[in-house]
């Protein structure tokens, strides 16, 4: 089953920063949204969004998860 990693970002309430809270595996954007909403349900988030990890572009590091995601997106 071909699934991609989606990173989950949330804002607790108005005026807060958007923060990274975790990630889920999903085969498309729609299911990723549902999985994120039901998995990270610990707070009553003011805002939540998901980003496919390959779309997070590392700026200064040459190692770490986001670099690996770039590498794996080439196959």
């Amino acid at each position: 089953m071909r699934e991609s990693v989606y990173d989950v970002f949330t804002r607790k309430e108005r005026g807060d920063r958007l923060q990274h809270v975790g990630y889920v595996d999903a085969f498309d954007d729609e299911t990723a949204k549902v999985y994120a909403w039901t998995t990270y349900s610990e707070e009553k988030w003011f805002e939540m969004c998901v980003v496919k990890r390959v779309n997070v572009l590392p700026v200064n590091r040459t190692d770490g998860l986001f670099v690996e995601a770039q590498d794996s997106s080439h196959d």
């Binding site: 999985y35 039901t38 998995t39 349900s41």
Partner: peptide, 12 residues
């Protein structure tokens, strides 16, 4: 369910 994430959603 076919993945844990899907199972979480089913429970919800």
């Amino acid at each position: 369910a076919p993945s844990i994430e899907t199972g979480v959603s089913m429970a919800s």
